[in-house]
Nucleic acid binder design. Structure first.
Lengths: 244, 244
DNA sequence: GGGCGAATTCTTGTATGCAAGAATTTTTCG
DNA sequence: CGAAAAATTCTTGCATACAAGAATTCGCCC
């Protein structure tokens, strides 16, 4: 069972994570451990199905089992890990069915965000979101995927924040984890860049006009388009890798 | 600082929680601890703002600090507790603003559930939901609040389950915690009983007809009515208790 | 040589120990 | 007598020790 393809090279992955501060202060380990592990899972560095050995994680992260266990519990609750009783937790599978389920929920949530945001949109807020849009375009012209990715997320997040509904933001952040994970797992993105930018422009226009109905509808469709393309790409890849 | 009104009578509250099994098997403490604490918070037995002393909880629940701490972390993530660094966690405040924020999100989520459920409604599923509706009516005629409460929740949950979207169900369960908490905190319920039953009948009819648009709209409005009434009741009580 | 079973090892679940920071009390000085 | 400061106590955050269940390996028997 020790074929190189079977065991995850956790050591190598985590060695790249910089150890934050030797002279740290209390109360920071849980949060930082969660953040590190979450990043590994969302980016796909820890593949779906990978087993998480607590002792190994302790060694690599340089902390004891307590914060590691708490982090595992937290990420399990977020749906990124699956807990099996008395067995190692595993990275949650990323099945296409769940991403399809995400489409309806995320598009509805962002649609609501657009509706509320349009009603509250000030010139300043719209300008800020516009800036994020142009930042995204800049990264697009430079073919910088990570920057594009981040600006895109910031654009959406800012709209949700503008909606001014803390419960909505909370739910959006939970969903965003899974969306990000799905995005990282499919490198489809360059294909949809131009379309996404056009749709963002339309959304921005609706927000500027303060048209709640239109903003809601456009955000809903934008999210639906993006995730649907993602599902299509994953299905394609899944069929190509059939019967490996 | 030991005035009887200041210190929560945690001992009394938790003494009522039956100790599950002395000869228990592994892996059950975390879950049961979470369930017990969650119930105390949601029902309001642990009042908003109450401090949770880990050692005290250990004594009362008969477990060590490890599962207690994990339970606190879990409930914090669910938004039922607030964690302060190096200080006792406290039961999250239940401010009216947050419940108002809940209205938009929950009504939208249940609206989506109604839409998806209507599209998938089989005779069997509708019959099952109808049964829950009549169970609720039965508890209504008998003036049994807990039973009514439970049947009402089961009615809504079953519709969300019928929608067949696991992400939607996950989000709904998270939101339901806060909704239940808000409901327990206001004993307004008897006032809305009849109205709620009528609305449920309308929803059931839309599901039976398989009319997704209508089911969505009626569920959205039903949830909005319920939570709005709740907010009004809480505001009224808040004004009555002004400057206590 | 192969399959079944027992023993060992490994891994998670729970309890406890230790240290840093917060709260409280006591003490001291004005 | 009051207020500020120091010391004590208390509480949480992290680490580690111990126990129960799972996985693996080794040996035995067929």
């Amino acid at each position: 069972m020790d074929s190189p393809a079977d065991t995850t090279p956790l050591a190598a992955l985590l060695a790249q994570v910089p150890q934050p501060e030797p002279g740290r202060r209390k109360g920071a380990l849980h949060g930082s451990t969660v953040a590190k592990l979450r990043n590994l899972i969302v980016t796909g560095a820890l593949a779906p199905g990978a087993k998480l050995n607590e002792r190994e994680l302790c060694l690599q992260l340089g902390v004891s089992r307590t914060p590691v266990r708490e982090a595992i519990k937290t990420l399990t609750q977020d749906g990124l890990l699956r807990a099996l009783p008395n067995k190692s937790s595993v990275v949650a599978e990323l099945d296409v069915g769940e991403i399809e389920a995400l489409i309806d929920v995320v598009s509805t949530i962002e649609g609501l965000a657009g509706e509320l945001a349009a009603a509250r949109a000030t010139d300043e807020a719209v300008a800020e979101i516009g800036m994020l849009h142009y930042r995204m375009m800049l990264h697009h012209t430079r073919d910088e995927l990570p920057g594009y990715f981040e600006a895109n997320k910031a654009f959406h997040r800012r709209i949700v924040e503008l909606a001014g509904n803390p419960v909505l933001l909370w739910i959006w952040e939970l969903l965003a984890l899974r969306v990000d994970r799905a995005r990282y797992s499919s490198n489809l993105w360059p294909k949809r860049w131009k379309m996404a930018i056009q749709e963002h422009e339309q959304i921005l226009a609706a927000l500027t006009a303060g048209d709640a109905t239109l903003a809601s509808q456009r955000l809903r469709e934008h999210v639906r388009n993006g995730l649907s393309g993602l599902v299509a790409a994953l299905k394609e890849r899944g069929e190509a890798a059939e019967g490996r």
